[in-house]
Design a protein around this nucleic acid. Structure first.
Length: 728
DNA sequence: ACCGATTGAATTTTT
DNA sequence: TTCAATCGGT
């Protein structure tokens, strides 16, 4: 935000922007001006090197990043930004496939895009059809395996090599067959098929190679194998591949991102240069050093040393709440004082968490205290049942052979076409090898079903035909309107104002889409919404506290950041602690969270937390003790200070405090204060229920309120209220 | 075929 | 806690 950052480039940045050509890896640490480098580079190419905009391809991972990039570029070079190919990997692939996918046998340019919910549904169908299911394979799991295979460019044989492989392979094959029939591509396909297109149709590849003289990739550490292959193939001719990334921020390994892409860049692209951007413009010294200290615990990384000219700033603060409710109260009360006493505004503040469900408690408290907030990302708008219903209608109109969508909405609202009928028609479709609508029409024409159902089907089909006709010469918004009216969907939502509102919102989105994309139809609209997520719409301009997961936080920054749930099994997440988990990735995730903060970072954990109904007693996150100790101020441990400050909200709630949900966990329960013990002294060995064994190094004060400094075996040095120790 | 109720299950991160 | 799927009654 300083003028130095805005107007001038430091030497490394300048070198990157003006790089003469050939492969370049820019290792850009957090807050080192990554986006700026890319946008300046594009502008440099266009204005100084006379590269025509349409010969530049810039890919990012999120629409948000793409939009931001486009906006900033159009600022730098007004007018020229239009021709640029800026987009996410997926949208770029889509653009290519919409043009050329029919050069591959068996594909049609009018394909639909299926998101993962669609995938799961189809996989379930396939499993049912193959009589797989009792064997305990979860559709989700199958999807992951299919995705993984596509990421590696694999075919249905190589989904893995365990005992499940045969089943999965069978499901995969049927799934692919069905997807062709449905004329649909899933997210994985967008990339995988693009790679195939390039591999199998050299003339197509050549055309794109020729076109793209410069290729820029943002967040390179998040690329997976297909993405790497696509980019590598495209850059083979001109070799101008410019990638920017930070291996320390690789947090999508679970989705197939391959951190070795960035670690091996020099090997993959011979004669590659590397430029490191190590100057951080964002955070205070304390925050940056905390992040640096943490990340050195990871083995697998490029050596980088981030530094900053910024002031030292405040220490990080760490607070342990009794439970998640107190955690929320603490966060909100700190937010309030940041605003009232610290002169912050709400939009300066963000709360990060590991899992979406953690937002709830915080939300409740924010609501209670009338603090404006916005949830960024999360269970998306587009995932809501009513929105999915509506898009299913649209899909069926765009392609009546979209069986999956048709089956979804054929009885919504209820119109007398029940499960029995659907099953029967599905069977006919399978027997005759025709689509579901065709089977419907056949059933009606040949009277294959009871009279009552035939009647219902007739009504449905004529309604559908009417809508299909209507869409031909009306806009998207009008079509949505018509659907709502003709299907009776609006009445269905009569008593649900919230859902009605959502449906209204999709209408607005459609109207907006029509305005900005002239000539685009329902198909394009559907593509757009399945490729967008809610995070894309966050602009940070509103006067609200932002709530989001650590993953969503990547690429953003805030003066004040709260990271909640600093506990084992949350950060690092439970799943990373088991078998094939990756704790280093969790550490990077936390690193990403830390480095979002400009001035003030709060870490909060709870000593008790309900997981789904069940009360658990987590231990503090190992990552907290990995931070350089002198940079962290431990706010309090069970001092109950907060309890006194908020009077009404939670007077002695003994009920919940003493609730015996599983007495098994009582051994790990927080230590009960021991009445009248005063006799701690330095050198004494003690045991703390969470931190384990330790040695007292210092005692201040007397009695229960004495503060004891303890050096723990596993958790470093902590200052603790004496009352909460167990002497030993 | 539909509705309601009970039961059971499952919860990471997302283009 | 919340959601989905299943079951049984109408």
């Amino acid at each position: 935000m300083t003028t130095a950052k805005k107007d001038t480039l430091n030497p490394s940045q300048h070198a990157a922007v003006t790089h003469p050509g050939g492969p370049l890896l820019v290792l850009a640490g957090a807050g080192s001006g990554k986006t700026k480098i890319i946008t300046e580079r594009i502008s440099h190419l266009v204005t100084k090197e006379d590269v025509s905009p349409h010969r530049i391809l810039a890919v990012t991972f999120t629409n948000k990043a793409a939009n931001e990039m486009r906006e900033r570029v159009s600022h730098l070079i007004p007018g020229s930004a239009k021709g640029l190919w800026i987009g996410t990997f997926h949208s770029t692939a889509l653009r290519i496939l919409k043009r050329d996918i029919d050069k591959l046998p068996g594909f049609d340019r009018n394909f639909a895009i299926y998101d993962d919910a669609d995938q799961i549904r189809l996989i379930k169908d396939c499993m049912a059809r193959l009589n797989i299911g009792e064997r305990g394979i979860e559709p989700r799991f199958v999807r992951t395996r299919i995705d993984r295979a596509k990421n590696r460019g694999g075919k249905p044989g190589d989904t893995g090599n365990d005992e499940l492989n045969e089943d999965i392979t069978n499901i995969f094959e049927l799934y692919e067959k069905e997807m062709r029939k449905l004329n649909a591509l899933d997210f994985g396909d967008l990339l995988h098929v693009t790679a195939r297109l390039f591999e199998e149709r050299p003339e197509v590849l050549e055309a794109y190679q020729e076109q793209f003289r410069h290729i820029l990739v943002d967040e390179y550490q998040d690329t997976n194998n297909v993405q790497y292959r696509i980019v590598e193939m495209l850059s083979r001719k001109h070799k101008n591949i410019f990638v920017v990334g930070d291996d320390n921020q690789s947090i999508y390994g679970w989705r197939g991102a391959d951190i070795t892409n960035i670690l091996n860049f020099e090997k993959d692209f011979p004669s590659a240069s590397i430029i490191k951007l190590e100057k951080n413009y964002r955070s205070t010294k304390n925050i940056l050093n905390a992040a640096n200290g943490l990340i050195t615990k990871n083995r697998n990384r490029h050596e980088k040393n981030l530094w900053t000219d910024n002031p030292e700033g405040e220490k990080l603060s760490y607070f342990e709440a009794v439970d998640e409710r107190e955690e929320a109260r603490y966060v909100v009360s700190e937010i309030e004082s940041e605003v009232s006493r610290g002169g912050r505004s709400y939009r300066d503040i963000a709360v990060f968490y590991r899992t979406n469900n953690q937002s709830r408690v915080i939300e409740e408290e924010l609501l209670r205290k009338d603090v404006p907030y916005a949830i960024v990302g999360g269970t998306g708008f587009y995932q809501r049942a009513e929105i999915r219903d509506l898009t299913a209608f649209l899909r069926v109109i765009a392609n009546p052979n979209d069986d999956l969508s048709l089956r979804r909405i054929i009885n919504v609202p209820a119109r007398g076409i029940g499960k029995g009928t659907v099953d029967e028609v599905t069977r006919i479709a399978a027997d005759e090898d025709i689509s579901f609508v065709e089977a419907l029409r056949k059933s009606v024409a040949e009277n294959l079903l009871p009279q009552r159902t035939i009647l219902a089907l007739k009504k449905f089909l004529s309604m559908l035909d009417g809508l299909i006709e209507f869409e031909k010469d009306h806009g998207i918004g009008e079509t949505i309107d018509r659907i709502l009216e003709k299907t009776g969907y609006l009445e269905l939502l009569e008593k649900e104002p919230e859902r009605r509102e959502n449906v209204g919102e999709i209408f607005n989105i459609a109207a907006e889409f029509e305005r900005e994309e002239e000539g685009a139809g329902v198909r394009e609209f559907l593509d757009r919404i399945t490729l967008s997520s809610d995070i894309d719409s966050y602009n940070g301009k509103e006067e609200r506290v932002a709530l989001m997961t650590l993953h969503s936080a990547k690429g953003l920054e805030f003066p004040v950041v709260f990271i909640i749930g600093m506990e084992e099994k949350l950060i690092p997440h439970y799943n990373s602690l088991k078998d094939n988990g990756d704790v280093e990735e969790e550490r990077r995730l936390f690193y990403v969270g830390i480095t979002r903060a400009r001035e003030k970072l709060y870490l909060i954990g709870a000593r008790s937390r309900r997981f789904f109904g069940k009360e658990e007693r987590p231990t503090p996150s190992r990552f907290v003790s990995e931070l350089p100790e002198e940079l962290v101020e431990v706010k309090n441990l069970y001092t109950g200070l907060l309890r006194e400050s908020t009077s009404s909200g939670f007077a002695p709630r003994n009920k919940s405090a003493t609730r015996r949900t599983g007495s098994a966990s009582s051994s790990a329960a927080p230590p009960t204060p021991k009445p009248g013990n005063s006799g701690y002294k330095a050198g004494q060995k003690i045991h703390h229920p969470s931190f384990g064994p330790g040695t007292i190094t210092k005692v201040e004060g007397e009695g229960d309120s004495a503060k004891v400094t303890v050096s723990f075996l596993a958790h470093g040095v902590k200052k603790i209220i004496a009352a909460y120790l167990e002497g030993k």
